[in-house]
């Protein structure tokens, strides 16, 4: 029995050596991310990394997915022990990463953060490619102001309170409410739940209060809101009474835009892999370590089929 185990171990060693030898000229990349099941955004994010960090592009990528920070930390430690060249991290939580990132630096491993920031000293990573959620909100609100409506009576449907996306996308609109340029008819969180969003809009309709804008902090909640409008015979979209705004740019949502059922959809770009790949290949450290991923907002009047194909997330 012992001999058998020894044999198997020896064989495994040989095989892994062979594997190492084979992958020698590739850049070894360890990716710590949240699992694709987290959201449509994450699924696109994971797919983006899988399509960029390929063997054809000169990479050998080993991904690790978890929603739990401590599991992510263990995995990152494992990647360091394995001797990867580059470590890419989208952390579940912002804290607890000092030790691991210091170990990576000591081992000469380059660390890039993507999608989410971590609370550590800037010197511990090469660059961070992130979305600016507050800017997403500003882009959307500026677009809304450009519509030049006589009055802005807004139903604001928020995401899960305290999440990055909610805080960022709420900020710009709250500023308008405070300045008095827009009237807050209702501001409620639906916690990303489509059905809850429908109930919120329904309750405003039943109260008889007038509104002409629905600002939903993601596509699903916008769809729930529109279902309530449809049932109550309120027109919406390009030639409708109510302006409908969503976020995330799911493919189906952009199609609603194209069909004129909605008016605006703000992008939250999951495409960070190419930017990071370019940084790795160039070998340069950017002057400003925090790189804001450029994000668009789409207008129903100007969106094209090409936009939908390029920027739409998920299935049709």
């Amino acid at each position: 029995m012992k001999k058998l185990i020894a044999l198997v171990l020896a064989l495994a060693l040989c095989l892994s050596m062979a594997a190492f030898a084979q992958a020698d000229d590739l850049i070894k990349v360890g990716v710590v991310n949240n699992p694709p099941s987290e959201s449509g955004y994450r699924a696109a994010n994971v797919a983006d990394f899988e399509s960029v960090f390929t063997a054809e592009n000169g990479y050998e990528m080993s991904p690790y997915y978890s929603l739990k920070n401590d599991e992510q930390l263990t995995a990152a430690q494992g990647f360091i022990t394995d001797g990867v060249d580059v470590l890419l991290i989208s952390a579940a939580e912002t804290t607890g990463w000092d030790e691991v990132l210091t170990a990576a630096q000591e081992a000469g491993i380059k660390v890039y953060l993507f999608n989410r920031m971590i609370d550590v000293d800037e010197s511990l990573y090469e660059a961070a490619v992130v979305s600016d959620m507050a800017k997403e909100g500003e882009t959307a609100v500026n677009w809304l102001l450009d519509q030049g409506l006589e009055a802005y009576n807004v139903i604001h449907i928020q995401g899960a309170m305290g999440s990055d996306a909610q805080i960022g996308r709420t900020g710009a609109l709250d500023a308008q409410f405070e300045a008095g340029t827009m009237k807050k008819v209702a501001q409620q969180t639906a916690t990303w739940d489509e059905a809850e969003a429908k109930k919120i809009v329904e309750s405003v309709i039943n109260s008889g209060e007038d509104f002409n804008v629905i600002y939903a902090e993601n596509d699903g909640m916008a769809k729930g809101a529109v279902a309530a409008l449809d049932e109550n015979g309120i027109t919406h979209g390009v030639d409708g009474k109510v302006i409908v705004m969503g976020f995330d740019c799911n493919k189906w949502a952009l199609k609603e835009l194209k069909a004129g059922n909605w008016n605006y959809d703000g992008q939250c770009s999951p495409f960070q892999a190419q930017i990071i790949s370019d940084l790795i290949k160039s070998g340069e450290t950017p002057a400003e370590k925090k790189i804001i991923n450029e994000e668009k907002g789409f207008d129903a009047k100007t969106i094209t089929d090409e936009d939908i194909a390029t920027y739409g997330l998920g299935e049709d």
Binding site: T191, W192, D193, K198, G220, K223
Partner: peptide, 16 residues
């Protein structure tokens, strides 16, 4: 019913 109401399935939020 939940799916037909919205015309969409979100595994995270349906009847949460």
């Amino acid at each position: 019913i939940g799916v037909c109401r919205l015309g969409l399935i979100n595994h995270e939020t349906l009847l949460i």
